[in-house]
Design a protein around this nucleic acid. Sequence first.
RNA 1: GCCGGCGUAGCUCAAUGGUAGAGCAACCGCCUUGUAAGCGGUAGGUUAUGGGUUCGAUUCCCAUCGUCGGCUCCA
Length: 593
Amino acid sequence: MGQKEEYANSELYRIRHSTAHVMAEAVLERFPDAKIAIGPAIDDGFYYDFDLPRPLVPEDLEAIEKRMRGLIQSKESFVREEITSEAAKALFADQPYKLELIEGLEHGGVDEDGNPTDEAVPMSVYRSGKFVDLCRGPHVENTGKINPQAFKLLNVAGAYWRGDEKRPMLQRIYGTAWESKDQLEAYLWKLEEAKKRDHRKLGKELDLFSTNEEVGAGLVLWHPNGAMIRHLIERFWDDQHMANGYDFVYTPHIGKASLWETSGHLGFYKENMYAPISIEEQDYYLKPMNCPFHLHIYKSQLRSYRDLPLRYAEKGTVYRYERSGVMHGLMRVRGFTQDDAHHFCRPDQMPDEIDFTLEFSINMLRAFGFKDFHAYLSTRPEKSVGDPQMWKDAEAALESSLKRLGVAYDVDAGGGAFYGPKIDLKVRDALDREWQLSTIQFDFNEPDRFDISYIGEDGQEHRPYMVHRALLGSMERFFGVLIEHYGGAFPVWLAPKQAVIIPIADRHVEFAREVAKRSRQAGLRVSVDERADRMNSKIRDAQKEKVPYMLVIGDREMEAGQVALRRRSGESLPPMSVDEFLALAKNEVEKRI
RNA sequence: GCCGGCGUAGCUCAAUGGUAGAGCAACCGCCUUGUAAGCGGUAGGUUAUGGGUUCGAUUCCCAUCGUCGGCUCCA
């Protein structure tokens, strides 16, 4: 959070906030009847929300941007003025959104950034040129401090007034602003890079997955290449779980209404569930979660304290009704497979169990090339179920595990689910973007609802702790993140095709097939490009497919019984024997590079 | 769900109120090739779907589906 404050006090923050004001001034010139809402600085830029007489088009943005440059040239000073609420109301008499903000400030309430404030705040306005805005500041001295070569308006989007979907929809203009032209260009370059790595684009180019209008939105078809990667991920996942004390379970995709009544989902999660399927006068629901089934497996027999901890793992496919506008490639879908598990343990085992789970989670993610983690610890909200002491113990266990493992974390006080505190783990990818993957959540609700217990040393029934956890999150989302992290150039151990063997002329095909056969026997996924094309063209195609190894075979290699290895990096290695190549590949597969 | 945009061949894109065109890919043929595109040919589209306006719609309008940028949501 220190970082946040640092940013809020930086010159860059002032530049961005000031650029937002200049933009609002330009918009008001163009649309004198515009109603202005709020316009803060954000990470990488700024925005301003407007209520306008018509939708903005790209030409508007160009014109506004041009006018902004003019306003910047005139070096208008930003002048701060303290003001009474009466004066403010008079000043903004025809600006209903500002009036609402003023009222909010009068009573405490919500400030410009949407953060609650407890007490009346002194009101201030900032003037620059003809524009005056209710604003806490700070700003740069004058608009000339904004580098006209270092800002850009990016796009227009809808945004609810005050983020409330029951309030009016405004038009939000997003922009970015920097101190220098170079910084702006670096930022725009990063956006371009991100576009190139977009998993939806790469998914098509590398033939990894698709969705289909007729199948339905948010329902993913895994093509052979994507499915191979998923299989390899799952195989690794299975091995790790087997080696770490998990039991595998399988459970159905639907369950009777009564199951979801018991679990409580029909009470608090129904709007995210698919409508029921009715048969023999019973309603069945597609499962949005796996836990009720796992709870029944737990309940299927009497449990002793000696049986615990129990860890039930399942790559469970769930279906959730996501509103139509929220779907996004593989990141947000309606049908997805969670790498789910539920742990049941005694209170005395609980801290160790959390330690184990967090460490296991981090090790799992590390295996896929993620190095930077950031955790969010969410604690008890106002409305919650369960014994407050259990909450405290659980929160303490989560926090001490984070500390022990040295994971950087923020505390989201009161941000937990009503049924228990949790840790969410975010990873940072190759482009410094954060993605939420793992989650470790206590549940103080379902054990009660299903009335699960174990017999303790004392011969009495006790309620176990229950923890939900997903390490990768879901196969879909994890795959999406992985695609973007590697930019489609998967490490050798995950590459759907690890090597393409490229015979230069037809007379080399036979030897190429021999090399392919030996490679397959050694466990590699290879193919021979037997097309009647030039070697150059075959290399080009293999590069585009991002195949890690290209083995070129011509007269020289055939005579010497060797292969010429070209890596997708462009690096060409001196000719080597097939065995040498296989040893090299084996080594890189094992190292997971 | 909401605001706005988009939907033309497998892919990337072009064009028009008078029933659509290119490159790549595919297929066929020639070439037998040395580290990112050899040459020629063939085939491929009810312009997302359903309505409407019009003499005529792929183009204009409406709805639906899908999708993109956001918002809200993601117990």
